[in-house]
Design a protein around this nucleic acid. Structure first.
Lengths: 231, 231
DNA sequence: CAAAAAACACGATTTAAATCAAGTTTTATT
DNA sequence: AATAAAACTTGATTTAAATCGTGTTTTTTG
């Protein structure tokens, strides 16, 4: 974890989370004054499941995974989070501990916002509060989708699902650079590394995708969607 | 669906959801005046995934399942809901459709609360709003747990998990009557009916549980927890 | 209450995917 | 740049769990 430092201001932050747009200028300034900005290197742990939830985190720059830690290295990735998103909201009210861990997939910049201040803002500003609910609900719905795919679909279906999700929801492009190892991709789709390797080869051979190292490109979205549906 | 009728008042409702306790008397009366009370028979569909979210539902009496509908009868049960709980909150802000279906496991009574009124109350009453967030977060955390169990644990582990969850979270007793068919229990644990049948037999033989028809009793919680951990 | 249908149990067989094994490529380290 | 280590690929084998087949019990219905 690097030494805290601040750059820019919340007001000037171009990709801020939708809920912050609901704040008054004074409220945004309050956050700005009290936030801490921290840099993490690729692979560093940002949040540890089970620790006290003292902050809501804002991912200013980078890419990370949220995951549940189980026994014997059995991890379950809840979600991939691109920049502009909040982390830790499920700990805002209720049990004041973090329910998942977070790890940086690439070098990332995080703003730490004191959770009590965040709570106070949700009490003072109903618009902000309902936007927070909206964000929470989007995470819930997204995790239901993942839940469904992982528990009901076969290997090609799950991988097609992942490709579509990355392209549409995360990178918003049919071509993207994904800084994940095969091990991490396997974890993401709940399959073994070998099965992942095979499905990549198959999809490459059938020209559904083009994967070279960390370079991904969707070639046949229609067919991928079909595989996702039937799988 | 039966003809709407009302019994008692919200004020007198003994097992009301925690968020309603945060309302003023006037606000609670407002709900009371505008709510509809509907009865459902066992097996009836209460909510249909994909339909317009016009109400937040309150389960006054009964037991139901929330589930995601997939293709080819591939359903995924999100959660079992005992009385006193709200249904449809993930549709409060954001996409105004229901993201899951709900079916009555036993004869149930539901209060329908207009979603716009519910939204208005969350705008007017910050305490209410934060309690709603708390409830949403509990659902999220609970579904993460289920997510993890189903995607990472083997059959005995998943079934032990279910038994512990039913006993501790739903029925709050080591003895309970569960009005579910084997098919529904199988759906709940993402396994085939035959596998479920076998694990029930095994657990019965090993005296971990006593299951006779719909009568369930936990006999050896310690061992169940061990199986859940290792599975 | 009898007949039909549905739910359930359980052994045999199949199958999807994990594990194992061995080689190759890429990345990191001295 | 040479060596070691890690990451990745690919085929062979194993295995957990699904499916299939059949008999039994329970529930529903005319």
């Amino acid at each position: 974890m690097a030494i805290p430092k601040k750059t820019n201001s919340c007001k000037a932050c171009t990709n801020k989370s939708s809920c912050f747009r609901k704040l008054t200028e004074e409220q945004l300034e309050l956050i700005d004054k009290n936030r801490l900005e921290v840099s993490y290197k690729k692979g560093e742990t940002i949040l540890k499941q089970g620790s006290f939830a003292s902050s809501i985190l804002y991912l200013k720059k980078g890419l990370l995974k949220l995951y549940i830690e189980g026994k014997n290295d059995k991890n379950l990735i809840i979600s991939i989070i691109p920049e502009g998103n909040l982390i830790g909201l499920p700990s805002l009210y209720g049990d004041p501990i973090y329910h998942y861990s977070a790890m940086a997939y690439e070098d990332s910049t995080i703003c730490l916002i004191d959770i009590d201040m965040f709570r106070q803002l949700s009490q003072d500003n109903a618009q902000f509060s309902s936007e927070v609910i909206k964000i929470l609900n989007e995470l819930t719905i997204h995790s239901f989708d993942r839940f469904f795919a992982i528990s009901q679909k076969n290997i090609p279906g799950r991988f097609a699902d992942l490709m579509i999700c990355l392209s549409k929801s995360i990178f918003k492009s049919e071509k993207f650079n994904l800084p994940l190892s095969r091990k991490e991709l396997a974890e993401l789709t709940s399959m073994s590394i070998e099965s992942l390797s095979r499905v990549i080869k198959d999809f490459n051979d059938e020209k559904l995708i083009r994967i070279e190292g960390k370079e991904f490109e969707i070639l046949d979205l229609k067919k991928l969607q079909q595989i996702s549906e039937n799988g």
